[in-house]
Design a protein around this nucleic acid. Structure first.
Lengths: 347, 347
DNA sequence: TTGAAAGCGCTAACAA
DNA sequence: TTGTTAGCGCTTTCAA
C-alpha cells in the first residue's frame, strides 16, 4: 500500500546484470543497439528486481512524456464523456496516454492545474477553457495546444458547425408550422452560445419566424427548470435550448406543471448527450459529433507535436446533425400565446 | 501554438537577477528563506523572462508532484462522474491536482497507462481496475494506492455497503407485496456484483421471496435491452438490476414492448447515476454516495501520502440509500408468471 | 557493442 | 541570507 522500499534504478539493474548503466538504458530505450545476449541478461535482471523505467526521469531529458492532457471545465457535464472517449481512443492509437484534468470553474484553479500539468505533457487540449485568450496563448507557447469549441486566431482549434446545426433546427420547427421560437440562452461567456444565437436570428429572419431569447444562464438542468418558470409567463410554441442539459431541465419543469411536450411546446436541444434519448419525452436535438470532436482535436494536436510545425492549421468545423425524437411536433392550432415581444438585444 | 523557443530555467533567471541558481530555486520553493529584496529582484527577472518552474524536474528530485490520479475503466460510464467530482474537490482542498486516466478496457493498456502515470503522481486511486490483485499490489508498492469498490487484504479500499443497500431494496419490494425477484446480473468479474447477489439471496431467503438471476452481462443499456427480451420469456413482478444503466435499458425495452413499468413490473437499479431521475419512469434505485466515495478515497489516500504510514486503514464501507421513484409500485394482483424456477447457481 | 561521463532543471545539504 | 556542490534517474555523446 505504500512506497518506501525505493524503486530499483538502472544502476541496480546494471550491477545485477554486470553491465554499465548506459547499457541498461539502451536495452529499454533503443533495443537493437545492444547485443541480444546482453539484452537478455539485462531484462532478466530487471524482471528479477522488479525494475520499471521512471518515465519522469526519462522525460526530464527527452522532454517527451507520451502524455497528452485534455482540460475540461466540469467532468460532470455529460457533454465531455464522448469527447474524452474520442480523444482517448485517438491518442491511444498513436501510443499516447490521455490525461483528463477537471479545472473546476475558476480561472485561478485552471491556471494552477495547467501549471502543474503542462510540463508533464507533450500537448494540451483545452475544452471549454475559462481562460482569456491571452492566458491561453501563454499556455500555447509552452506546449502545442488545441482549443475545442472556440476559435482563436493564433491557436489551433476544432469546433462544431453551429450555424449549420442551428439552421437545421429552425427549418425543422418551421416545417412543423412553428412561427415563434424562444431561445434558452447559455452562459454569457460561451463562444458557442454566441454562434448559436446569431445563426438562430439569421435563420429565423429568413424564414420569417419571431425569435427572442432568455437571459444568459448556466447550462444545467436546474437552470433549465428556473428558466421554464419564467418562460411560462410568456410562452411560445417552440423552444431551442443552448444545450441538452438546459432542455431536459426545462422539459422536466413543464411536464411537472402539466404542460404537454411536444403537444403544447416543442423543444430542441443541442449536443445529443447521454440521456437525451431516454428522457421523457426523448429529446429532439442538434447532435454534436462528440467523439469525432475529441479525436479530431487529438490528431490536430499530434500533428503539431510530431512535426515541429509553427504553421497554424485552419480551424476545423465539424458538421452537426439534427436528430428528431419525441420532443417536437406540429405547432398547436391555437398558439399558447400569439403575442410575442420582439427579440430584445441583451444588455 | 508550439513550444520550441526553449523555456527559461532557473539558470537564466539567476543570471538575469545576478544571483545563484539556488537562490532562484528558494524564492519559489521556500519563500521566506530568502531576503525580500532579493526575492523581488528574482521574481522580476522571472516574470521578465516568462519563467515557469518545471514541475517535472522538481518531481525528479523531491519525488512529489502534488498530483493525484484516478484510473477509471471507462470515463463514459456516468457512475464515475460524481466519483471523480468528489475526488477532485477533496484533492483540490488539500492543494492537490487530480488527474483522470481512462485505462480503456484491457489490462494491457491499463498497465501502460499506469507505468506512465505512476512516476508522476503522489498517489493513485483505482476505480474499477481490470488488473489482478497481484498487479494492483505491484502498483501499490510504487505509490500509495486506494482501490474503489473492491476490497483487498493489503491495499487500502473504499467501497459501498452493498449488503445494506441490497437489503433496503428487497425490503422495499417486499413491502409492496412482491414475492418474486429477478436479479439482472452485472459483469462476471465485478466484485460489487458478487456482493449484491449474495446479499440479495440472503435477504430474499429471510423474507421468503423467490429470487433468481440472469446470466452475467456488461453493465450497459444495450445489455439491459437484451436481457429484457429474455426476461419476458419468464417474467417476475419485480426486478433488481446490477446498476442503473442496465435498469434503464431494461426499462426502455419493456416500455417499447408495451409493458407497463411499474404497473406490470417494478424495477430497482443501483447507484443513482445521472439520468436515473429523468428517465421514464424515473428510476427507484439504491443510491451510491458517489461524491463521498471519491472524496473518501482521496482522504484515505492523502493520509498515506503525507504520513508515511505503512499501516493499512480498515476498508471503508459507505452507506447506500434507497431512493424511491416511479419505477416501483405494488405487485399486480395476478402475477405475470407465478411459477418461477428456483435460483440456479451460476456455472 | 559497450563503458565513462556529462548533463536535463531543480532541490538540498553544507559552507561561507 | 546566499553560494557551492552534489545528486534525482535517465539519455546520449564520445571513446574504447
Amino acid at each position: 500500500m505504500s512506497d518506501e522500499p525505493r524503486q530499483p534504478t538502472i544502476y541496480d539493474v546494471a550491477r545485477a546484470a554486470g553491465v554499465a548503466p548506459s547499457t541498461v538504458s539502451r536495452t529499454f530505450s533503443r533495443p537493437g543497439r545492444v547485443n541480444a545476449d546482453t539484452a537478455a541478461r539485462v531484462r532478466a535482471a530487471a524482471d528479477e528486481l522488479g525494475y520499471r523505467a521512471n518515465a519522469i526521469a526519462r522525460a526530464l531529458h527527452s522532454g517527451k512524456t507520451q502524455l497528452l492532457a485534455i482540460a475540461v471545465a466540469d467532468v460532470t457535464n455529460p457533454f465531455f464523456f464522448d469527447v474524452i472517449r474520442g480523444a482517448e481512443t485517438a491518442a491511444s492509437e498513436e501510443g499516447y496516454t490521455m490525461l483528463v484534468a477537471d479545472v473546476q470553474e475558476s480561472p485561478v484553479s485552471e491556471r494552477r492545474a495547467l501549471d502543474r500539468i503542462l510540463p508533464l505533457v507533450d500537448g494540451l487540449i483545452l475544452a471549454t477553457s475559462r481562460l482569456s485568450d491571452s492566458a491561453i496563448r501563454v499556455a500555447a507557447k509552452q506546449r502545442p495546444t488545441v482549443v475545442l469549441n472556440r476559435v482563436m486566431s493564433d491557436v489551433a482549434s476544432v469546433a462544431t458547425d453551429n450555424s449549420g446545426g442551428t439552421r437545421h433546427a429552425v427549418e425543422h420547427l418551421a416545417s412543423l408550422g412553428h412561427r415563434q421560437i424562444t431561445y434558452l440562452a447559455g452562459p454569457e461567456a460561451s463562444w458557442a452560445d454566441g454562434m448559436r444565437w446569431r445563426a438562430l436570428r439569421e435563420a429565423c429572419h429568413r424564414l420569417e419566424i419571431t425569435v427572442r431569447r432568455t437571459p444568459p444562464s448556466a447550462p444545467t438542468r436546474e437552470e433549465g427548470r428556473r428558466v421554464a418558470a419564467r418562460f411560462l409567463e410568456n410562452p411560445t410554441t417552440a423552444v431551442i435550448a443552448y444545450n441538452d442539459l438546459l432542455a431536459i431541465g426545462f422539459g422536466q419543469e413543464l411536464t411537472e406543471r402539466g404542460i404537454d411536450i411536444p403537444g403544447a411546446v416543442s423543444v430542441v436541444g443541442f449536443d445529443d448527450i447521454f440521456g437525451a434519448d431516454f428522457c421523457n419525452p426523448p429529446l429532439t436535438t442538434v447532435a454534436s459529433p462528440l467523439r469525432a470532436l475529441g479525436a479530431h482535436a487529438v490528431r490536430t494536436l499530434l500533428r503539431q507535436v510530431t512535426t515541429h510545425t509553427p504553421r497554424l492549421p485552419p480551424p476545423a468545423k465539424l458538421p452537426m446533425k439534427l436528430v428528431v425524437r419525441g420532443s417536437t411536433t406540429t405547432a398547436p392550432a391555437r398558439p399558447t400565446d400569439p403575442v410575442l415581444p420582439p427579440a430584445a438585444p441583451r444588455p
